[in-house]
Design a protein around this nucleic acid. Structure first.
Length: 841
DNA sequence: GGACCTCCTACT
DNA sequence: GTAGGAGGTCCC
């Protein structure tokens, strides 16, 4: 694709004076720009260009196509600059963008927005400065308001302020009117400045000037300096430099450069240093360094057990016939070692490899294991890294300086040149599906497409595969390899159910603990072993309730109850972030007795601390892991056995290897099972199996206790008996019966509007239109979603189910999008928003 | 997404 | 009347 467009371009470059440009914004079309003569060669397809966009604004765009068709209805503006000689985005990526936009019903601009690290998305920002003729002491020609005065006062002290920061300085929601007024009064000027440019990390280094890098020359120099008498400081600097040069080497390497900061830290006089540089004795220069530098020896690959070796061979065989293979390996079966061997072979064959991991599983544990083997061939791509760090990985992947990347879902967008293998670890993880900003893509499914574009292979792995993947493997569309034996002959734990209903009736519950779980916990504490307690709800309790009138405090902006957080003494909305102090009394009846209902991690922590005051307890959930390192700290403390009991949400179920955990307690399995969506069973089975897998490794067999009010529940029965085959057959049957994925393709259409009746009317109109054109069995009636208002917008929903075969899904999707578009153009529904979620999770 | 414009409304 | 918010539009 690249080749052909380039050669076409060579032949006819003068006839391609226009470019279609994609901008990273949620807009449907490309924009046409004129390519100035000096850029005819440079502005290739895939290059980033700077373009004027909107009212006096600079945007980064990508050249999608070159052509010679001069747009007739408007005059094309000119590309301002081409940002690189080699395209940032390769042909595979452009195809991938367009596939994602089509499949997930979003725009290519949204994909670009998600794909490019912001360090590569330069755009201009408006700044405000004082007008050169403005005189603060002079009586102003026009009177100034208090707000205007505030801004001018600020500008007396500062050279300029970014427009976007004015609202932080002055309590104004939209400062544009204020700024406009001040411009008119000739008190300020506006100017634009580019921001977010990538800057490589550099260090300043000092070395001897080449003229002095010989012993004799140096001796002469010393003699000369010492004779002067006032150069003592300079002599000290030179001696220190020589000392540092020889530090890790007996032989003095006179050409060697040392860090300037080190010289200064060790006491070199800055002014003497400056003089030496000025006199041409020392050389002061900048060196670009990588942000990630792997130090230390790489080890050879860990050997595989017989079972691992067999699994690896089976995967290779499967992938020789099929593009995708599912590896189902129980927790603790040693999948990571198999990955390493497969990656090694991929690199050996001259290809790049990508290992996708769920956000939360990207810990130092897995990174350091891979780094030990792959050293500086390995790159890590994570949202917690800075922009500059991400740009660096991006560029190294592009230059083939990195052969392996371990990363989170957005690493499918990296500019791989010759991908050979993609591995999706823990593929059932819902965090692979992006939700909040569109594109709402699933990284596993995008990975399969990405691999296909590179004619590469995909390995999809999990102990508890998604129903979708399991089905594809069962149907033979994907290969399938099973690894059932735990590594080093570790035994699977005993999983037991504890009947909360019975315990409650007999009044045997101690707070939220059944006698079974409490007994085991006591034993573990006495034996100095470790335990994990799992409850899938953060905060103290899901909500507060009035003891008398049963009123529950609700969010002002959303249709949800507020969650009680004891530590911060607040009630919070998990949807819009609204929070308020805990109400002293019921707002409905004035009663002051508000009780907590339900169970969150914070409350369990409190109970455990009461029950075991001498034991070290740690809680791990969204609230305790907000900062960059706290997650890792909690993990480290627990694996070093500084903490004995770990209490947490989902997070504790994710691929962490702790050897001394002998007990896992699930405090309330019913909360999982009751979840009102079609994935409740699947999620329950996966979560309970995964969390159980945390118990007992190596020598010691573990125990898992699951508390429930429904001991007969079929899902729980299958979990405790390890009947995963039965589970998949059972659940596939249900899905077939009720027409859910993997038997149909699901799309959720959400309509959003600030006016309730408008959104209802728009939704039923859209539903009627879709039902009559696509079939009533494929499109649901418009209905209110479970949460019908978020951030003061009312929501309506339409569910679409397309069968997998015998129906043109792509055509159906296009029809939906077209219908949505024309509905939004309807003047009765101005302000209507339509959101699509393809393959919702 | 954001800078602009227009329209609406709550005040001194 | 007008400052400030809210909604709507367009970007090549």
């Amino acid at each position: 694709m690249m080749e052909s467009s380039e050669s076409l371009f060579d032949l006819e470059q003068d006839e391609l004076p226009f470019a279609e440009v994609l901008v990273p914004l949620p807009l449907e079309q490309y924009f046409t720009y004129r390519v100035p003569r000096q850029f005819t060669d440079l502005a290739q397809v895939g290059c980033r260009v700077l373009v004027p966009f909107g009212r006096q604004k600079v945007q980064t765009g990508i050249v999608i196509q070159r052509h010679s068709k001069n747009p007739s209805v408007y005059e094309a503006k000119a590309i301002m600059d081409v940002l690189e000689e080699r395209p940032s985005i390769n042909a595979h990526q452009l195809s991938l963008f367009s596939w994602i936009a089509n499949y997930y019903l979003c725009t290519e601009g949204e994909v670009l927005q998600a794909a490019l690290p912001s360090g590569l998305k330069i755009h201009s920002e408006i700044n405000v400065q004082l007008h050169p003729y403005y005189d603060a002491d002079k009586e102003p020609e026009y009177p100034l308001t208090a707000h205007e005065q505030l801004l001018l006062d600020h500008l007396q002290q500062h050279d300029f302020i970014p427009f976007s920061e004015i609202s932080k300085l002055i309590p104004l929601k939209d400062p544009s009117a204020l700024v406009r007024s001040l411009v008119k009064k000739e008190a300020i000027l506006l100017f634009e400045k580019l921001k977010d440019k990538f800057s490589p990390k550099t260090v300043r280094k000092i070395s001897l000037h080449p003229d002095y890098q010989q012993k004799e020359k140096l001796q002469a120099l010393f003699a000369q300096l010492e004779s002067k008498g006032n150069s003592q400081k300079q002599v000290e600097v030179l001696l220190l430099l020589l000392q540092l040069q020889s530090l890790d080497n007996d032989d003095i390497g006179l050409a060697k450069a040392v860090h300037k900061s080190e010289l200064i830290n060790k006491g070199a006089s800055a002014s003497a240093l400056k003089t030496l540089v000025k006199n041409g004795i020392l050389h002061d220069f900048q060196e670009t360094i990588a942000r990630f530098q792997f130090r230390g020896e790489t080890k050879s690959l860990p050997p595989l057990s017989k079972e691992q070796e067999q699994a690896k061979e089976a995967i290779i065989t499967a992938l020789s016939e099929k593009e995708v293979c599912l590896l189902q390996g129980v927790t603790g079966s040693g999948k990571t070692e198999i990955y390493m061997h497969l990656i090694e072979e991929t690199i050996y064959n001259g290809h790049q490899a990508l290992l996708l991991v769920p956000e939360i599983a990207l810990t130092t544990q897995i990174v350091s294991r891979l780094q030990q083997v792959f050293g500086d061939k390995l790159g890590v791509y994570h949202s917690r890294f800075s922009d500059n760090e991400r740009v660096e990985v991006w560029q190294k992947v592009q230059n083939d300086a990195l052969q392996v990347v371990v990363g989170v879902r957005s690493s499918v967008f990296l500019p791989f040149e010759n991908l050979g293998l993609v591995i999706v670890d823990e593929e059932h993880e819902s965090s692979y599906k992006q939700f909040d900003p569109s594109p709402r893509y699933h990284a596993r499914d995008v990975a399969v497409v990405l691999a296909h574009l590179h004619q590469a292979k995909t390995l999809v792995a999990s102990a508890t595969p998604s129903l979708e993947s399991f089905y594809l493997a069962q149907e033979g569309k994907w290969g399938y390899v099973l690894l059932e034996k735990r590594f080093a002959d570790a035994q699977m734990p005993d999983i037991l159910l504890a009947d909360m209903k019975k315990a409650k009736k007999r009044r045997e519950m101690v707070q939220d603990f059944t006698p079974e779980l409490l007994t085991q916990l006591r034993y573990v504490v006495e034996q100095k072993e470790q335990a994990i307690l799992f409850q899938n709800r953060r905060g103290y309790a899901p909500f507060l309730q009035c003891d008398i009138c049963a009123h529950v405090p609700r969010c002002k902006n959303c249709d949800v109850s507020l969650t009680y957080h004891q530590f911060s003494e607040e009630v919070r909305c998990h949807y819009c972030g609204y929070k308020e102090p805990v109400p002293a009394s019921c707002e409905a009846c004035g009663n002051s007795q508000l009780i907590t209902v339900g169970l969150g991690t914070e409350k369990i922590e409190e109970e455990v601390v009461q029950l075991f005051p001498a034991t070290k307890v740690q809680r791990m959930d969204l609230d305790t892991t907000r900062s960059k390192h706290s997650y890792q700290e909690i993990i480290d403390d627990f694996s070093q056995q500084k903490t004995q009991i770990l209490i947490g949400t989902q997070m504790v179920t994710k691929g962490l290897d702790f050897d001394q955990v002998t007990l896992v307690g699930v405090l309330d399995a019913d909360g999982l099972l009751r979840f009102p969506d079609f994935r409740a069973s699947e999620r329950s089975f996966q979560t309970l199996t995964q969390v159980s897998g945390r118990a007992g490794r190596k020598e010691k067999k573990g125990v898992v206790i699951i508390q429930t009010r429904d001991v007969q529940h079929p899902i729980l029965q299958m979990v405790i008996h390890y009947q995963w085959r039965e589970f998949y057959q059972y659940e596939l049957n249900e899905r077939r019966l009720f027409r859910f994925p993997p038997f149909v393709r699901l799309i959720t259409i959400t309509l959003r509007h600030r006016d309730k009746s408008s959104v209802k009317q728009a939704a039923s109109q859209l539903a009627r239109h879709l039902r009559s054109n696509l079939g009533e069995n494929r499109v649901s009636e418009a209905h209110e979603p479970l949460i019908s208002r978020i951030k003061n917008r009312f929501l309506m929903e339409i569910t679409v189910k397309f069968e997998r075969t015998g129906f043109n899904v792509q055509q159906g999707k296009a029809f939906i999008k077209q219908s949505g578009k024309s509905l939004m153009e309807n003047k009765n529904f101005t302000g209507l928003e339509i959101l699509y979620d393809v393959d919702p999770y």
